[in-house]
């Protein structure tokens, strides 16, 4: 288990990581997700030991390692540029950690073979990194770290340098290696889709803080903040003045037990339906189609409602021969009360 307690890192006056609290369970695939500059790399490097925290604590398996040298922490890092040793071949690269630990020849050989097989690099043992493709280098980097049997593997945007197709393949492969070895993965990415598809849990970070740490489903369905709602998937954020917003062109129904006063709600685009007439209950809004974008399995509509806000609507393309709604068409959008998710008020900061 990795425990971070009020972990803070300042570079001069700038706070890169701001009092983070996190618990990462053994065997978990845990991602840190957030826009560039939000402090993901700094957090990861503090866990690895390459950055010293300004304040706070880091515990690995219950042991305080805040001031332990990186070479004595039982975690390994996979660097974004792989950082393979160019003068060593694949076998020597993978062997490096074991050679330093002076592991017995026979056991080292067996572990190396097993690891090279796990990342499907058999037959490439004598190649040097310069003779490997990006994806292969990535796999060698993975093997080189995992062969040490670390308590946790730290990965900093490991797929960032690969093209889209290879990235998709490697996502699946990483996930399967993680499940095979049962190693805890702490995975840094700015790609929300990547984080959602691979992780058991995701910490969404913003401005050095963790906005929410939860499983992907919870993040999508019950975001703790407008930032999370916006960063995970597509969402329609609306500020509703008091209780309900009711008029001729719009009616917003909120779920039961919603707070009074001004609230911010988010409605996911696939929950909004285009209907023929105003529904008897739930929410609706009249508007005009601004744009329709064909996305293969669905069509994305951008609709400007009468109050001036723009809503994104996703329509499944499951009916043959349905004409897309042309820009300028007048539509009525409807969604049920429970799909207006009220974003919790933030406590005093």
């Amino acid at each position: 288990m990795i425990t971070l307690s009020s972990l803070t890192k300042q570079f001069g006056d700038a706070t890169a990581v701001d009092a983070i609290d996190l618990e990462i369970a053994d065997g978990e695939f845990f991602s840190m997700l957030g826009p560039s500059g939000c402090g993901k790399t700094t957090t990861l490097r503090m866990i690895a030991g390459f950055e010293e925290p300004t304040s706070g604590r880091i515990e690995l398996a219950g042991e305080d390692v805040t001031w332990t040298s990186p070479r004595r922490r039982n975690v390994n890092m996979v660097f974004q540029n792989y950082a393979l040793f160019p003068h060593m071949n694949v076998r020597e690269n993978v062997e490096f950690g074991l050679r330093i630990k002076k592991l017995g020849k026979a056991e080292a050989k067996e572990r190396i073979e097993r690891m090279v097989a796990a990342v499907r690099m058999e037959g490439f043992e004598d190649r040097h990194p310069a003779q490997l493709s990006g994806g292969q280098q990535q796999r060698v980097a993975l093997a080189r770290a995992l062969v040490n049997q670390p308590a946790a593997l730290l990965l900093d945007e490991p797929l960032g340098a690969l093209d889209l197709k290879l990235r998709k393949e490697m996502q699946l492969e990483l996930k399967s290696i993680q499940q095979q070895t049962g190693t805890t993965f702490v995975y840094v990415t700015h790609d929300q889709e990547e984080a959602l598809t691979m992780s058991d849990r995701v910490a969404v970070m913003n401005g050095g803080k963790v906005e929410q740490a939860a499983d992907p489903r919870t993040l999508y369905q019950r975001p703790d903040s407008a930032f999370v709602a916006d960063f995970i998937g597509t969402s329609n954020l609306m500020t509703i003045p008091t209780g309900q917003r009711a008029g001729e062109d719009i009616r917003i129904a909120l779920p039961a037990a919603s707070p009074n006063g001004e609230v911010t709600i988010t409605v996911r685009p696939e929950k909004i339906k285009v209907v023929a007439s105003e529904p008897a209950d739930g929410s609706y809004a009249r508007g005009t189609v601004l744009e329709n974008v064909y996305l293969g399995s669905m069509t994305q509509l951008i609709v400007e409602i009468r109050s001036g806000e723009r809503l994104i609507v996703h329509q499944l393309n499951d009916e043959d021969g349905r004409e897309p709604l042309a820009p300028g068409a007048a539509v009525i959008l409807a969604w049920s009360a429970e799909h207006s998710y009220v974003i919790p008020e933030k406590g005093p900061q």
Partner: peptide, 27 residues
């Protein structure tokens, strides 16, 4: 010289001297 190679060596348990000997000097 890419400093992340030095970090990679340390990360895998190398001392400063081992890092110099096995990673930096050959490079």
């Amino acid at each position: 010289f890419d400093p992340s190679l030095e970090e990679a060596a340390i990360d895998m348990g190398a001392s400063q001297l081992q890092m110099m000997r096995y990673v930096v000097l050959p490079q």
